[in-house]
Design a protein around this nucleic acid. Sequence first.
DNA 1: CATGAATGAGTGTTCATTCAT
DNA 2: AATGAATGAACACTCATTCAT
Lengths: 209, 209, 209, 209
Amino acid sequence: MKPELRREQILRAATSVFAAKGYHRASVSDIIAAAGVARGTFYLYFEGKREIFAELVDVLTVRLINCMKRVDLGPAAPPWPEQLRMNVLHIATILAEERELTQMLYNHALGLDEDFDRKIREFYQNLTNRVEGAFRLGQEMGLLRPELHTRLATYHVIGSVKEVIYHLAKGGDLDLTVEAMVNELLSYYNLGLLKSQPKPQTAKPPRKK
Amino acid sequence: MKPELRREQILRAATSVFAAKGYHRASVSDIIAAAGVARGTFYLYFEGKREIFAELVDVLTVRLINCMKRVDLGPAAPPWPEQLRMNVLHIATILAEERELTQMLYNHALGLDEDFDRKIREFYQNLTNRVEGAFRLGQEMGLLRPELHTRLATYHVIGSVKEVIYHLAKGGDLDLTVEAMVNELLSYYNLGLLKSQPKPQTAKPPRKK
Amino acid sequence: MKPELRREQILRAATSVFAAKGYHRASVSDIIAAAGVARGTFYLYFEGKREIFAELVDVLTVRLINCMKRVDLGPAAPPWPEQLRMNVLHIATILAEERELTQMLYNHALGLDEDFDRKIREFYQNLTNRVEGAFRLGQEMGLLRPELHTRLATYHVIGSVKEVIYHLAKGGDLDLTVEAMVNELLSYYNLGLLKSQPKPQTAKPPRKK
Amino acid sequence: MKPELRREQILRAATSVFAAKGYHRASVSDIIAAAGVARGTFYLYFEGKREIFAELVDVLTVRLINCMKRVDLGPAAPPWPEQLRMNVLHIATILAEERELTQMLYNHALGLDEDFDRKIREFYQNLTNRVEGAFRLGQEMGLLRPELHTRLATYHVIGSVKEVIYHLAKGGDLDLTVEAMVNELLSYYNLGLLKSQPKPQTAKPPRKK
DNA sequence: CATGAATGAGTGTTCATTCAT
DNA sequence: AATGAATGAACACTCATTCAT
């Protein structure tokens, strides 16, 4: 069999095993059983359990990082809020597509290895910095409340998206399309949850029109 | 040494070992080394590694559940938003006090045991139901936007609080008192992040009146 | 190395370790040292210490049960006493061949596990029932003394055979072939030990007179 | 409490624990729980688990050895067969009285310790020698068949008594008094099990013909 | 005399990884 | 490339024994 296919096959098997049992409870035996290959074959394509897990996480991470566009202030660029919305939408779309990888990440990404933990933290650091940067920009542009504690707001938004995505990936009780979900979520960020008292013109009433 | 003290000592050692290394990488050897007791002593006070971890989680869980008051609509009760704020404040205060336990929970609570995972999930289920109940109530009372997807809003708030608390517990980059943080966070839920355009009179400057 | 051979090798090592030290004092370390394999290898072939011991016992038990023929009364069958003799001879031959297994069984089979004890007891129950059945038959056929307490006589014979076989397996002080031993033993069952004096008709009064 | 009483109390507790669970599965914790004394107290009266077990075995052994009278050929002595019968009766009576100790001995006496095993073996050696001595004597006196293999006959009788006593001690399916049992058993040794037909002079050929 | 908290050597078992075929 | 038998360090846990109080 073609090497790349074999790799792919093992990778797929590993994904579902990790998603189902979590990193620690998953064993190499589980993975090779799921992939239908011999023990030795596994080590022919991957350095070990940690490494195949890391690769899966990396693949997802890279896809996420690539889809996040830096906010562009050029004259031809779409408006700032729309750029933010697109970013959230892209992230959510990817995570919703890769349900197994996402579950894997959420449930068991931490605690396997100091190196590994660091990598995860770096990803979040990166994410946090980008979002906070966008928020500072928004403040400067007069779009966001100036008294906002941008770091806190950043964690607020990241946590909110993480949790919602998690439940979406887990499947079950959220009967929404990804797009609808993102729109609704953004309305929370924009308007809050309170009943809209006669609210001004620009506030982006997400979908209703 | 008095049994309770010894228990306490081991419990404390376990807490920091679990917080530092996570459940799986922590070994009983680590815990007894940290506590400075012999192997057998550990098993004199606890049934095993899983059990001492469960006890730590339970202690925290019970404290959290106890501090969450059901929303009370009686005439003498404080207003609904204030009740919500107090709940969030209590939770945040406890978690901020128990930094190590909180880190432990955030980082490594899932994936050790099917029974155990279930317990954690039940805790969140419980929490989700309470919050969503409160939100439905808020909608009926005309305080929340009627088109709100209450389940999504629930995850939004829970995720947001979780993330913020996590960073608070981790220590580091949030230079706020717990109270200030809660107030600011609630302002996001209430008003959103956008700059308040000439906003109406009632927009709920949360409790102040 | 071929799996079956390795299995065989470990099984043999376990047999002599168990025979020499008994189940409880034998450790898995002893067995792997005797077999010259690594710890993990042992668990590759056997579920654990209890299981390998059970397998050894089972092998012997099955061989014994298979060699015991039900007494057959058909017209073409050999006479009843000859059938009994053959059964005892077969059992004794097997046990004498499997000296180590036999020692293992005699010395240390009880007390390891409730399940296990039950299995051993069931084997003896089975044996007891078969022998007693044969004795009842013998009584009906008028070959055995009618006043015989068949259950007691059964224990008498089983105990006698067990003890003799044990010493045969232990090696040492019985300078007889298995066949000679069985013949002599049967003469005890048949005629007793006393010098045949003109025998009285009613059996009972061994010492009186 | 009086030291001897305390000793007695622990000894009694140990007896029933050992009888119920066997030497290996019985723990010092079981014994002290049954005796209602503290851990340290146990070690005040006994050197350890092995030693208390050894003491119980010793007590029984001494009683047994004391009750076995050497066969006496003096003119005033009772006849040889009666002396044998009395010995068997005494042994059986003691073992039947001390049911728990007897069960303990039967089930788990071997395999704990090389020293210990040796002691048990010595007891049986002693017993074997005495019985064989009596049998040789019987042969010389013309009471026993001269062609008897005395060693084999000895094991035959010892095994038979052991097994029968074991079932008597275990309780359950032997509905006989000790005395009746001994009489019946001796009739087997004397006369065999066969229906007394006009017995031939030469004893041997049970199956031939 | 009595206590029971403390000990730690020893056990059975797991599983990621290696390597001869 | 592929196999799977073999490895052994690491682990959670037990329990007979000790000794300060």
